[in-house]
């Protein structure tokens, strides 16, 4: 897996279940960031030229290559809009999230 996914974390109920000191499994995600987003990037695959500019500049690394197409991990995209702003073909639209 190239990106970590949310784990089902159960807080230890006994002190012996705690990590020994502040160290824990790398890449262990107990939470998503989706709730931060007010706009979501939506890729128009007809206009996308797969230049990978959006993949390159995403501060959260949530844009990924999916069998030759650009895809977005909406669990962790914060909706900053850098991808859409940097897209040379305006192939990404920032669409308001429906609450």
């Amino acid at each position: 897996m190239s990106r970590p996914v949310k784990q089902n974390f159960i807080r230890p109920s006994h002190i012996e279940g705690f990590p020994v000191g502040p160290q824990f499994t790398a890449g262990h995600l107990a939470d998503t960031n989706a709730g931060w987003r007010t706009f979501r990037p939506v890729v128009n695959h007809d206009t996308c030229i797969y230049c990978l500019r959006c993949y390159l500049v995403c501060p959260d690394g949530t844009i990924f290559k999916d069998n030759g197409k650009i895809a977005v991990d909406y669990d962790y995209c914060k909706g900053c809009g850098v991808c859409a702003h940097e897209c040379p073909k305006n192939a990404i639209e920032m669409v308001k999230e429906q609450l």
């Binding site: 970590p4 995600l29 960031n33 931060w36 501060p59 959260d60 900053c80």
Partner: peptide, 10 residues
């Protein structure tokens, strides 16, 4: 570096 809590657009 994934799933971090940096501000959007950091």
């Amino acid at each position: 570096f994934y799933g971090h809590k940096a501000c959007a657009g950091c």
